[in-house]
Amino acid sequence: MTLTATSFDWVRQLVHKESAIVLQPGKEYLVEARLLPMAQQRGLTGVSELVESVRNRPDAATTRRIVEALTTNETSWFRDGDPFTALTGTVLPSLVAGRRPEERLNIWSAACSSGQEPYTIAMLVSDALPDAARRVSITATDLSREMVERTRAGRFSQLEVNRGLPASMLVRHFTRAGNEWEISPTLRRMVTTTECNLAAPLPRMGPFDVVYLRNVLIYFDMATKQGILRRVRQLMRPDGWLFLGAAETTLGVDDNWERVVLGRGSAYRPRKGN
């Protein structure tokens, strides 16, 4: 056990602040087990060294990974269903009606993690549009090279496909590959992957009709949030749609967005005249 009491306490407070989840004393083994791979990946000897390095040099990306590692085992498919219901219920029909048939629809999954979000989008649009493979292009980006590679591979463990993927979609869009499940080649071809740091100048991409930027802003300070929202807006079509995480908003951060209520959730659209 290399985890010091101070490190454990710091992690507890962080996780509580960001997720409202309480790590009881005695859960040191859990922190150790979940964070050790991340420490080793960074060439550190233990979890306490990882915590020390983040405390000395605050780093939103690493902080986010720490919280994620402790709060979820696997990313869910259709995570917080509302932004996906809105995609097929409102956003896609309005985009299809407003664009010429030969115009491509560009969707950006801006923090794609291990790929559940971009492939959820791919499944939905391929069920909703007969010519989805030709018509829709999905760009999946993440800060982490490992996550980008996982998304590109499109392979998921048994535990991952159990997380909120409807069984009917599993059998339609995946095939077994050893003890993993592999997304169908048609859907994988719709998704282009690349590394991207949202807190820095963005690569040439887009313009996007829809952007999923969920559970990213919460980890950054106000100035960085504003910078991210500004750069994302520059890559969006004027009539595009932005989806944020359930606990996130542009209100009070960046006035250049208009909030639109869609079903039980909401989306944000670039405000006209900016």
């Binding site: 083994y29 859990l30 150790e32 087990a33 979940r34 085992n73 463990s157 048994q158 535990l159």
Partner: peptide, 12 residues
């Protein structure tokens, strides 16, 4: 997978 999900979180 069986150990982490059935036996217990953190069990290896």
């Amino acid at each position: 997978d069986v150990w982490t999900s059935l036996v217990g979180d953190g069990e290896v």
